[in-house]
Amino acid sequence: MTMLQFNGVHTYYGPIHVLKGVNYRVEEGEIVCLLGANGAGKTTTMKTILGLVRPTEGTVVFKGQEIGKMTPSQVVKAGIAPVPEGRRVFSRMSVSENLELGAYVRSDHKAIADDMSRVFDLFPRLKERRKQLAGLMSGGEQQMLAIGRAMMARPTLLIMDEPSMGLSPIFVERVFDTVQSINKQGVTIFMVEQNANMALTIANRGYVLQNGEVVLENDAASLLQSELVRKTYLGEAIEVS
C-alpha cells in the first residue's frame, strides 16, 4: 500500500517558490530518504506533510486520503508524527511531560501509559531522567526524547528532519539503529538527512531534491553509487579535467 504520495506539489513561503511540482511516493514499511542541499525544500516538504505549509497546487495523499488541506492536528490524528529539525523538545518541561505532549491528540489513557513504558524500554536513559527538564539534557538525549515523543502519537508514518544533526558520532549511530528498529516494528519512515552515507545505508529508496525539484530518485544502493550523490553529498572530490 502507498503510505504517502506527493503529486505535483507546489508551495510558497511568501513570494518564494519553494517546492516546484515535486512527486514523492513512500510505500508502507519503507525507509525513504530525502537528500538535498540547504534551501532545497527538504524542511518545507516536512512542513507540507504536517499541514504547517499549504500546497498551492498538487495533492498530498496519506493512505488514500488527501491531507494537503488538513490542520496539523488532523494530520497527527491521521497517524503522522514528526521528529522536527533541531529536535524542538519543550525545554522547560519534564521528559515525561514532553512524552505526554507527543500523545496529545490521543485520549486512550491506558494505551498511552503502555506506550510510555515502551518508549522507556527503548530509551532507558529517558526513564532515569523522566522528571528532569528536557532543556537540561544533552543533544543526544534530547534527540531520543524527540523520537520517543513522536512514537507516543502511535504513528504509522514517522517523518524525521535531520535526526543526526549536531550529534556526536556515537549518538548518530544510535539514532540510525533506533530508526531501523522502529521501522522493523512496522512504522514507515520518511527522513530528511544530511548524513547521506548513513541514511542511504539504512534506507530502501531515496530522492535528491535541488532547488525545489526532484532531480534523482532511485533505490538507496543505486543512489549511493550515483555520481551526483557521491560528489554532492558524500564529499568526493570533483575531478577537474
Binding site: L50, L52, T71, P72, S73, V75, V76, K77, P82, P84, R88, V89, F90, S91, R92, M93, E97, E100, L101, G102, Y104, V105, R149, A153
Partner: peptide, 22 residues
C-alpha cells in the same frame, strides 16, 4: 492537559502545532 498545551505553546508554538495542539 490544557495546561501542558499552554506551556508547550508558550515555549515553541510551531512545535506545539506539530504535536497536534490547536
Amino acid at each position: 492537559r490544557m495546561g501542558k498545551a499552554m506551556r508547550a505553546t508558550a515555549q515553541d508554538q510551531e512545535a506545539a502545532r506539530m504535536m497536534g495542539i490547536d
